[in-house]
Amino acid sequence: MSAPILKVSGVSKRFGGFTALDGIELELGASERLGLIGPNGSGKTTLINCISGALTNDAGSIVFEGQDITRLPPHRRAALGVARSFQIPKPFRSMTVLENLRVPLEYAARGRTERRRIDADALEVLELIGLKNRAHDSSAGLTQVDMRKLELARALAAKPKLLVSDEAMAGLSSSEVDEILEILLALNGRGVAVIMIEHIMRAVMGFAQRLVVLDAGRKIADGTPQDIIRNPDVERAYLGE
């Protein structure tokens, strides 16, 4: 593994008396593809909320490219190159698809984007995602799969080094899942590290180079997909004794 781009050490998060995360350790190499799996309520979304800054962890530290980002608000992390997509798409509904991408280009990727290149950059992202023909349509009128694509496109427009994709494929048809997978692979091919949370096992197994399994706020396994499916702890977490 190359030098880690993200280092999560001893991260814990409590909500009242409930421990959502308990001493999570995680390292991610630059341009690595990581799958994050675990039963419902195991803390996957809490963990990526801590990584993207939507939540602040109670203990432990998060280091991104050698910089401690534990206390930074989400917009600063976005500017450093941490992007995320949301499980339930959150488009800027009053804007067109293209305008949706202008926001991260003008804010998160500011300083890494030339001002007069903004529209060109946005169109390039839309081309890669396959939404170019909808560029000037209202984002509120998109189909479900196009909304997911817009979600990824907007994350991508922030010119991230790490993309956290939270169940980008839930509820999509099999061919649509393949479309999204292709986009994520293309992205990764450009050197972006990806953390994928996904319940569709076919998608995670095909995509991830490494899997991390969470259960009840603890990391119970970390290894290649082949090792993970043979791991008895993982089997117990998913299927019970």
Partner: peptide
């Protein structure tokens, strides 16, 4: 640019913050 940031906040504050907007 500030106006576009404000519009992003109006549409979805959480998504705006994650797109780098200092909400």
């Amino acid at each position: 640019r500030i106006g576009r940031g404000l519009a992003a906040i109006r549409d979805d504050e959480v998504a705006a913050e994650c797109a780098g907007v200092p909400t």
